[in-house]
């Protein structure tokens, strides 16, 4: 690695001040599982690395008035071990479990996974399916936007060079919402997703889909919602046929590419099947709780 300066501020304000002083020559260091690899293989080394792991605001998993707050520096291992997430949102545990291997999950963070913004990120689909919000701090204070707005393109978020991701919030009404996540990789361990997917819905009176959400990864420039499939399901009876139909509709919404991992045709097949299975998985979770 080429030389850089290292600072580790201990407050959100001092991170923002450091970015203001050094951007665009500064990079934020979270868990480092992506960034350190990049720094070893790029000539475009930042002058200053700002380690944000010491900032207390970026840690912790807790229920607040607005919903479940997860600090951006919470590791994938911490998500897997969180009792409240295990109980209320087991799909998040499943998604975290598919990230890398134990060593990378011990270092890698939820915020880092989102900020890196690769289309195959494993944290994205479940959080999109739960209408997650993100808090961003910058020189003008903090702002909150939807995770959907946060994703802009491959490896591109809406973060300005002097802004930092503080936390992720699952809105209160969605904490406990039946959700299911699935990932298809070429191996069981340490594989990137050919497709990953999540679905969530509440079971409405008369056994109907209420607030259905379908989110798909690795089939478009960013993790995306299949809104036409969601609209189709809303208000309809929960049946296997409707789940399968939603899968077929979702296929029409994606923009998959062919790369060395899979062809776009194969990804389309996976999306039809995974959408159906995620919906079925969410329903099974609902039934197991009843």
């Amino acid at each position: 690695m080429r030389a850089f300066d290292y600072i580790a501020p201990d407050s959100t304000e001092s991170v923002v001040a450091a970015l203001a002083a050094h951007s665009p020559n500064a990079r934020l260091l979270g868990g480092g599982t992506d960034l350190i690899v990049d720094l070893k293989h790029t000539s475009n080394t930042p002058k200053v690395l700002v380690d944000v792991s010491q900032v207390e605001d970026f840690h912790g998993i807790e229920m607040t008035d607005r919903g479940l707050r997860i600090g951006s520096m919470v590791t994938h291992t911490e998500i897997m071990k969180s009792e409240i997430i295990q109980k209320e949102l087991p799909a998040m545990v499943d998604a975290a479990h598919t990230v890398g291997a134990v060593q990378t999950r011990n270092l890698g963070t939820l915020g880092g996974n989102l900020v890196t913004c690769v289309p195959s990120m494993d944290s994205g689909p479940t959080l999109l399916a739960l209408d997650a919000l993100v808090t961003i701090a910058g020189p003008k204070g903090s702002r909150q936007i939807t995770l959907e707005e946060f994703f802009v393109g491959p490896r591109k978020t809406c973060l300005e060079p002097d802004e930092v991701l503080v936390d992720i919030i699952i809105p209160k009404e969605n904490v406990g919402k039946p959700t299911h996540f699935l990932k298809f990789g070429l191996r069981k361990g340490q594989a990137l997703a050919l497709v990953n997917a999540a679905a969530s819905f509440h079971v409405g009176d008369g056994n109907i889909f209420s607030a259905p959400r379908i989110a798909l990864g690795a089939v478009a420039p960013v993790v995306m919602r299949a809104t036409k499939a969601e609209d189709f399901l809303a208000g309809k009876e929960i049946t296997e046929a409707n789940m399968a139909e939603a899968g077929e509709i979702a296929v029409t919404e994606i923009k998959p590419i062919t790369d060395f991992r899979a062809s776009k045709e194969y990804r389309r097949e996976l999306v039809a099947v995974f959408t159906r299975r995620c919906l079925a998985g969410a329903y099974a979770l609902h039934q197991s709780r009843a």
């Binding site: 260091l29 480092g32 350190i36 690899v37 291992t77 060593q103 011990n106 270092l107």
Partner: peptide, 13 residues
């Protein structure tokens, strides 16, 4: 107490 890839962690961390 947690396993990490020492190649991905800076000594200062």
């Amino acid at each position: 107490g947690k396993s990490v890839n020492a190649c991905l962690m800076l000594a200062v961390q």
